[in-house]
Design a binder for these strands. Structure first.
Length: 662
DNA sequence: GGGTCTATCTTTG
DNA sequence: TTCCACAAAGATAGACCC
């Protein structure tokens, strides 16, 4: 954003006020002619829908800043002195948590994807190269960065900045392989290291330093050289008392360098005092502008100096975060394993209003998402539809389902309903996300606690199995489509989808009157889950459908039907590698994966049954769908699985206190 | 009034 | 010629429900 003196410049040099993410300094871009880059980016973007949307967002941000300035101006001196008391108290409390006993190391691979690509094709060395395509690039090597090309920049702009830029397509298999190699090295220094992403990690090297009598810097040197000899790739490192500082440090001598910040309070405070706020992980473009333009905070030190303003204008958690940053505090513990909270899939395409096309895209994405969920053995009950309109406006619509599911049919059915409500509109992106996972299934990770145990421990009051609502048990259907998992073959026809919507709408009122657990009642005749040992019987004699039992002898041992549920549709591997229940493909050699997969189907049935019965006592509300209609006898809902996740929160977004002084 | 759900925004790699 | 991704997470506010 402008610095205040640029209102006149805006007329002659309009690009100066066009803020992109690319204006932020990045390693390897020190000598770049920033004005030239900014001008080119502006010229390339000007007038586009994207640009217009950026302007809209910019205007909103300015409004926010103005609003905050107003509130700031209205604060009386007694208000401020009261807030200052709060700050003083919080400083004492935060100081009490300062832990200088740990040594954290943050490793960050240098231009990781680009470096890997150069390893496999050395002719790319010394040439400007970007990994990605014309719509977006993932990373650029240091040669390309000299031209202002960088990650998250559209390829067509990058090419304008650097006409000789070589584009290399993304290849995650390769990056994962190299990432695994680096992680083997990391493990030698901290078996519980935290992998931030494929190319970065946090290591608590306190113990290894103590055991070997080496300093953090010496360990960092050794680790980096070890990573290089194992992979041929360079990395940079930062060593400090906590993770927040270590991350900042790893960026200082990038590439192929390191920086050590001594573990003493005075050194930390000196280091942090002049540090620009944008260097802190969690402070992005928006927060930076709000803090700078509304409150005049540019450095971390100023967060402490202007603490009373922060506590007056921001929520407690945001203000706490700012203050702790200003004090150079950060996390020093090794967190528990963090599990994912949602899973999603989204695709961008040429903007269209064509309903038929949109429904078909939606079906593709539902299929992709369902497949990913099945691969991970996840079921969930909240579905969110994300749309990006042709004008880049983002919309999201969510619905919580009555039961946990991962089936593409379920996902598509509800997603279609939500999409229909938005039409007509020109759309360029559709995304689907599932959240609110069924924790019971996740916690029954076979490697930790077998599914068998999970089942045996279950309450014996269990009623019955689910129907095929969540998982398509109709193997013939899969066969009929030759198990081609490409989306075309699974595509739900436009007419079918419309039928779903219309049927749903017709039945809506009635459905709402129905007692919540009607589905479960309909399943009384379904076979009961057997308890204990009965569950362990593996039915190798269950004959798979003849149409699937291919006469390929080499596969027969892998196509044995294995059903842990007598009387239920058995699970077997068509052609030796395709699951007859969901169509997922797992080669015969994937013994463990196949076992886990069978366990997953088993657990899912249990879970469906479980959620079916629990929904009779606590059905999910259907607010949006119900509208104002009064849902009959809706018992109080409770969400036992929602609390845990909100405890350890590394990333902060900052919103102002709600309407407090406005 | 407290808990839950939805919509939106921000950040990160 | 090509015209701004994708996945995940957290924070927050307001609507809604009991």
């Amino acid at each position: 954003m402008e610095d205040g003196e640029s209102s006149t410049n805006n007329l002659s040099r309009p690009w100066e006020s066009y803020n992109t993410v690319f204006t932020n300094a990045k390693a390897g871009m020190e000598g770049v002619d920033k004005e030239k880059v900014q001008r080119i980016v502006y010229e390339m973007s000007k007038g586009s829908k994207y640009f217009q949307n950026e302007e809209r967002k910019e205007a909103l941000m300015k409004q926010k800043i103005e609003h905050m300035r107003d509130r700031c101006a209205k604060l009386s001196s007694s208000d401020l002195s009261n807030y200052q008391k709060v700050v003083d108290r919080r400083i004492l409390e935060l100081e009490a948590t300062r832990d200088l006993s740990r040594i954290w190391l943050h490793v960050d691979m240098d231009a990781f994807y680009a470096a890997v690509e150069t390893l496999s094709n050395p002719s790319l060395k010394d040439k400007p190269m970007a990994v990605g395509g014309l719509s977006m690039i993932s990373t650029a090597n240091y040669e390309a960065r000299k031209f202002g090309v960088r990650a998250a920049m559209p390829g067509f702009i990058a090419r304008k900045l650097c006409p000789d830029l070589i584009f290399v397509p993304v290849d995650f298999t390769k990056y994962t392989h190299y990432s695994d190699l680096t992680r083997k090295v990391f493990k030698n220094y901290d078996p519980h290291f935290i992998a931030g992403s494929l190319d970065e990690a946090y290591l608590d090297i306190t113990e290894v330093c103590r055991e070997r009598g080496l300093s953090g810097g010496e360990i960092a040197e050794e680790l980096r050289s070890s990573v290089y000899s194992e992979t041929g790739l360079t990395c940079s490192a930062g060593v400090a008392a906590n993770r927040l500082l270590a991350k900042v440090c790893s960026d200082i001598n990038k590439p192929n360098g390191q920086y050590v910040l001594q573990n003493d309070r005075a050194t930390v405070l000196t280091f942090i005092s002049s540090l620009p706020i944008r260097k802190i992980g969690g402070i992005g473009k928006v927060t930076e502008h709000i803090l700078k333009d509304a409150l005049g905070i540019k450095t971390c030190e100023e967060m402490v100096l202007k603490g009373s303003l922060l506590y007056a204008l921001f929520t407690q958690s945001s203000a706490d975060f700012f203050l702790s940053v200003g004090l150079g505090l950060g996390k020093t513990d090794t967190p528990q394993v963090r599990s994912r909270k949602s899973i999603s899939s989204e695709r961008t395409f040429a903007a269209t209003e064509d309903e038929r096309l949109l429904y078909s895209k939606l079906a593709e994405i539902a299929e992709m998402l369902s497949l990913d969920m099945k691969k991970e053995g996840i079921t969930a009950r909240t579905l969110t539809l994300k749309l990006k309109t042709a004008s880049f406006e983002i919309r999201s619509r969510a619905v919580s389902l009555q039961r946990y599911t991962c089936s593409s049919e379920d996902i598509l059915k509800h997603a279609t309903k939500m999409l229909k409500a938005e039409l007509p509109v020109s759309i360029r992106l559709i995304g689907l996300r599932m959240s609110q996972f069924n924790e019971e299934i996740r916690h029954s990770d076979p490697s930790q606690e077998t599914i068998t145990k999970f089942i045996v421990q279950k309450d014996s009051s269990r009623q019955n199995l689910d129907d095929s609502d969540s998982i398509d048990l109709d193997a013939s259907k899969i066969d009929g489509e030759s198990l081609n998992l490409s989306f075309g073959s699974h595509e739900t026809s436009y007419a079918q989808q419309k039928d779903v919507v219309e049927y749903e709408e017709e039945s809506r009122i009635d459905a709402d009157k129905v007692i919540p657990n009607q589905e479960c009642e309909n399943k009384e005749e379904k076979p009961r889950v057997l308890e204990g040992d009965a569950l362990l019987i593996k039915h190798t004699d269950c004959k798979p459908d003849t149409s699937h039992s291919m006469n390929d002898n080499s596969n027969t041992q892998n196509t044995k039907a294995v059903s842990v549920f007598p009387q239920m549709e058995p699970l077997f591997w068509i052609d030796g590698y395709r699951c007859n229940l969901c169509g997922i493909e797992l080669p015969p050699s994937f013994v463990e994966e196949r076992q886990e997969h069978s366990d997953f189907h088993l657990a899912q049935r249990l879970q469906n049954e479980e959620s079916g019965s629990s929904s009779s006592t606590r059905p999910a509300p259907k607010r949006r769908i119900l509208g104002k209609e009064k849902a009959n006898s809706k018992p109080k809902k409770q969400k036992p699985d929602q609390k845990e996740g909100s405890k350890h929160i590394p990333i902060h977004t900052f919103f102002t206190r709600s309407n407090q002084n406005s």
